[in-house]
């Protein structure tokens, strides 16, 4: 892990010194070891801020859209899942390939801080986290811990399709094997099996918690509309009230808006302050797209066309 950080810094430094890029977007250390924050580095001296570890969950591809019209080139650090966003943004003509340098970092899964902190002594601060492959050693000021990595990963990492970036200019670190710890759609299937009443009760419980903070939208790498319909005042297409009915409408509209474009990076689910399982909505759409149109996860290949964006005579016709 240390040499990944070392190489990352060297490469970023080189890119900035040679003026190949004007900005490097990467992961930086936050207020504590388990918190990382996006860093924006514009000088070679700043590269020491870059870091890498098992707590780099953010999808930094999102920030590229903020620099869409900025002059100069940008380098961005991406994991496998984030690199799907890059493909998707390229296909949507949101970014141009020649202005972006993609630094890919193969990833063996990101830990969920909540799960880890539940294990260690309350109030203890992390000193060091070492990834040993299948297990993780955590050193804190209140003792050392070692646990099975599988139980502490973010859920999206348990069903990871692309541990290695699908598109990158330089890759740092060694390739990671694809480990599907569990069936990708197991949770969706379980929900599908429920009766209408059970589904109703389940989703009403989830949606009624929503605060309409729009974190799920803001973090989404394929939400690139300049004015979101949920912010628009004139005309006000959708109500801004927070109640079960409106929340349900919001979440269904959001999920359907990214249908066929969602790269399944799972960020919406991770950032939700109310822990609404948003990814189950998106995954349902992924599953249906796969079942009906045999389409792969968007972004896994460059130039993939969404099945919802084109017609082919072989499309299933459930509405005849």
């Amino acid at each position: 892990m240390m040499d990944v950080i070392q190489q990352l810094r060297e490469q970023a430094k080189k890119l900035l010194e040679e003026k190949k890029v004007d900005l490097v977007i990467g992961f930086g250390q936050g207020t504590e070891l388990a918190r990382t924050t996006p860093v924006f580095i514009d000088s070679p001296e700043g590269v020491s801020k870059l870091t890498w570890g098992p707590f780099c969950a953010n999808n930094l591809a999102k920030y590229l859209t903020d620099y869409k019209n900025a002059p100069g080139n940008i380098a961005v650090v991406v994991k496998g899942c984030d690199s799907r966003s890059i493909n998707r943004l390229l296909d949507d003509n949101q970014i141009s390939r020649d202005k972006v340098v993609i630094i890919g970092v193969p990833c063996s899964g990101q830990l969920e801080w909540q799960k880890v902190s539940a294990e260690i002594k309350p109030g203890a601060s992390l000193k060091e986290v070492v990834d040993n492959g299948d297990s993780v050693s955590v050193k804190t000021d209140a003792g050392d811990y070692k646990f099975d990595k599988k139980d502490y990963l973010l859920h999206r990492c348990l069903v990871c399709e692309n541990p290695n970036p699908v598109v990158s200019d330089l890759t740092i670190g060694k390739e990671q094997p694809v480990k599907n710890y569990e069936d990708r759609f197991a949770e969706v299937q379980a929900l599908e099996q429920m009766s209408t009443e059970e589904k109703n009760a389940y989703w009403d419980k989830q949606f009624s918690r929503c605060l309409r903070c729009y974190a799920c939208r803001n973090v989404c790498s394929v939400c690139t509309c300049q004015t979101c319909v949920f912010d628009q005042m004139l005309p006000m297409w959708v109500s801004k009230r927070t109640n079960l009915s409106e929340n349900t409408a919001f979440h269904l509209t959001r999920a359907f808006h990214v249908a066929g474009r969602c790269v399944d990076c799972g960020e919406c689910d991770r950032v939700c302050p109310m822990d609404i399982p948003l990814r189950k909505l998106n995954q349902k759409i992924h599953k249906d797209l796969g079942d009906l149109f045999e389409s792969p996860t968007p972004g896994t290949k460059p130039g993939l066309v969404s099945p919802l964006g084109e017609f082919s005579p072989g499309d299933p016709e459930e509405f005849m």
């Binding site: 929900l191 599908e192 209408t196 009443e197 589904k199 109703n200 009760a201 389940y202 989703w203 009403d204 349900t248 269904l252 999920a255 359907f256 249908a259 909505l281 349902k284 759409i285 249906d288 797209l289 009906l292 919802l308 459930e318 509405f319 005849m320």
Partner: peptide, 19 residues
């Protein structure tokens, strides 16, 4: 697609139809 999503979140099948 929408039909499947609506049924997934708890609408009775048949409430929404496309013909």
């Amino acid at each position: 697609m929408l039909k499947r999503l609506l049924e997934y979140v708890g609408f009775e099948p048949g409430r929404f139809q496309a013909r």
